[in-house]
Amino acid sequence: MNHDAYDDNYIRSILNNVKSIAMVGASPVNVRPSYFAFKYLAQRGYDMIPVNPGHVGKALMGKPFVASLADIDRPIDMIDIFRNSSHIMPVVDEALKLSPLPKVIWMQLGARDDAAAEKAEAAGLKVVMNRCPKIEYGRLSSEISWMGVNSRTLSSKRAPIPTQGMRLSLNRTSFGGGQTAASDRAAKNKTETT
């Protein structure tokens, strides 16, 4: 698996198939990226579960915080990790103890732990690193185009007007979802920094 550049079909199949998402590191503070992503994914119809031991007793968009993955009372399809790269491994270890196992480990924009990814993949999970599911959903549905962002998708079909709770089609024609000269350079710049 090349974790520098994902094929759009890989991301698309994940976002089309998962239904429940536990967000580790979800924040109730409304200027944090985790709050943005949680709210958006909930609005697009995903069953969202906020995981953060510091906020147990509170709720995010009506969903009560739980302290850890083990405290979730139902099977979860995907774990979206909003933690720094150095805090990924313990979360993956915890995820791999769940039964049934989750299907996907997703590490947020800026987060990457190749050893943790390898461990999860060895257990049969799909892994995405250094991406935001909100951005990817918005991109593949072209909803992000309102912001002048290059969705790298085309469609000659009329799009629906998004309403609360509505799932959008992610099945547009993709172009350039994989590696480009620019994505290579961005990855290289990042490696040189760290």
Partner: peptide, 20 residues
């Protein structure tokens, strides 16, 4: 893998879709 559209296709289509 999706087919990569060429420059002329993007010049006509990229960013545009029928009005919702």
């Amino acid at each position: 893998t999706d087919r990569l559209p060429g420059f002329s296709t993007l010049a006509v289509h990229a960013g545009a879709q029928p009005d919702p």
